[in-house]
Amino acid sequence: MRKKVIFKGVALPLLLLAPQLAITCVFFLWPAGAAIWQSVLQQDAWGLRTEFVGLRNFEEVLVDPAWREAAWNTLVFSAAVATSAMAVALFLAVQADKSIRGANLYKTLLIWPYAVAPAVAAVLWLFLFHPSIGLIGRALNQAGILWDYKLNGGQAMLLVIIASAWKQVSYNFIFFLAGLQSIPRSVLEAAAIDGARPTRRFWTVVFPLLSPTTFFLLVVNLVYAFFDTFGVIHALTGGGPGKATETLIYKVYVEGVQNTNLGSSAAQSVILMVLVIAMTVVQFRFIERRVHY
């Protein structure tokens, strides 16, 4: 789409664009380029010499068992966060979409966790699941289930998944609710007159009509789980115990900041960039297709 009416001039629009472009170039394109550049270099142990090594950093990263473990963790973590956050959100949105008293109050009370920072969400759940001071953590231990997320990798993973998903439910809820409300009443009424019962109506009419929203949320949730949950992991487990909750983005941080292995960190960054760009492209392809059908 294009405006028919436009103002004349070249200097003014360029001036208006200048701040945005300057920041984009300096803080986005330059670093992205630098990451790509560094990913093909390797520094010696004393940081004195740097040599061009081609794709060796990538090879090393991809065969590194630690990286593979982090990739596997990321996969498990992201899949769990995305599916649980979306399933719960969809269920609640369907309930909140019904015409009942207090629907608006429920909405408000379900929306607010969006505002909580991932790291703060982590802290809140820590208060519940801490083995000695947490309500649930202690209850589990008293019930004979040995619970200590600081020692048990599986439990640590479960906890970061819960804390990450909890925060994301609100976001998904808002979108599912908007999606549900945009389904024309007449379609639902037609289905009711066709004799479809509510459950059936949901799976044969509502859910297919929500598929654009669902797909959009899937991509957003995966991106969220990949990147935004850094705060959850950092605040809650620090990637531990061992490396049980170390995800790819956490590993980039560890390599770059703690181990200062820039070449490897850069190569990992580049891999992640390619991943995000691929996901964004897939999403836009899909949205474009949706527009035409």
């Binding site: 986005f28 330059w30 670093p31 992205a32 630098a34 990451a35 560094q38 991106v223 990147f227 935004d228 850094f230 983005i249 980039v252 941080y253 770059g256 900041v257 820039l262 960190s265 850069a266 960054s269 992640l272 960039m273 995000v276």
Partner: peptide, 9 residues
Amino acid sequence: LPVEVRIIP
């Protein structure tokens, strides 16, 4: 390019 992926550079 989320800030997280290009954090070090």
